[in-house]
Design a protein around this nucleic acid. Sequence first.
DNA 1: ACAAATATCTTGACAATCAAACAATATCCC
DNA 2: GGGATATTGTTTGATTGTCAAGATATTTGT
Lengths: 145, 145
Amino acid sequence: MTAPITETEKLSHQLIELYGKLSSWEQDVVKSSSLSPAQMHTIEIVGHEPHGATLRMKDLAKKMGVTTGTLTVMIDRLEQQGLLKRTPHETDRRSYLIALTEKGQGLFVEHHQYHLRLTEEITATLSTEEQALFSATLEKIIGQM
Amino acid sequence: MTAPITETEKLSHQLIELYGKLSSWEQDVVKSSSLSPAQMHTIEIVGHEPHGATLRMKDLAKKMGVTTGTLTVMIDRLEQQGLLKRTPHETDRRSYLIALTEKGQGLFVEHHQYHLRLTEEITATLSTEEQALFSATLEKIIGQM
DNA sequence: ACAAATATCTTGACAATCAAACAATATCCC
DNA sequence: GGGATATTGTTTGATTGTCAAGATATTTGT
């Protein structure tokens, strides 16, 4: 492949590079736990839910971009490990609400700290203004997706 | 989870969100091809190599963060589909060099165009200066990882 | 009440992955 | 040169992630 020419090509390349680095960072971090990347990802998604939110299997599957069939076995295993639990939906007896257990919450918080530490490290050389501006632009970009 | 408070928490959250959106974008794009995400990723890594570079199985496995055992079956399947090929290393008879075929190169270029189009779309509302600044900061961040 | 829609689970098939064992080749050192 | 050691890639066996399709239970609409 030839070197990027246009600004768009440069940025596209940077996004791919960032994605790849985040990916292998996450893989490394997860390796020290007993969970697979997909399992940790599930914990992260559930953990990021606002407190008190109700997440049904279907909602979670949609958020994660997998089928409910896939999610069933994923949740089965995480439930077996005591990291999250199904509780019956109050009014819809077909549904379960998925939530972290204490143990799962602990794991989530610990993992979240890793993310914060990474973010601190990679922004260490930026000025407050530069970081704020970066964040603002990133917000716009995310809004376009 | 509560709302982000510090700038670091905000940025960490944004990075996770960006990652997730890129992830599902890639999944959607790949779905219209006959390849799995992992297979397309392999094509991308090989395709991004500088022209004339020599990639052995071991190198590629390292770049991708998988074992050579995993890569062997991955390359087997892509080779069966005529997207890339193994050619014997000139001096080391244990090794192969992995490279895209014409067909694989075509697929790579097509996929690369998708990436460029996405980048254009998400930066459409940014001024030239804002994009340049964003790119510069992103460069620093990537350099810290 | 009944038909249609919905939520979840189950099953069968295959891809992705790793660790460990293996085969072929290369390198080192005496 | 030749034997010990290291490296490269493949194979094997096990587990996980994934989907599509079908099954079951429940809810909704008429």
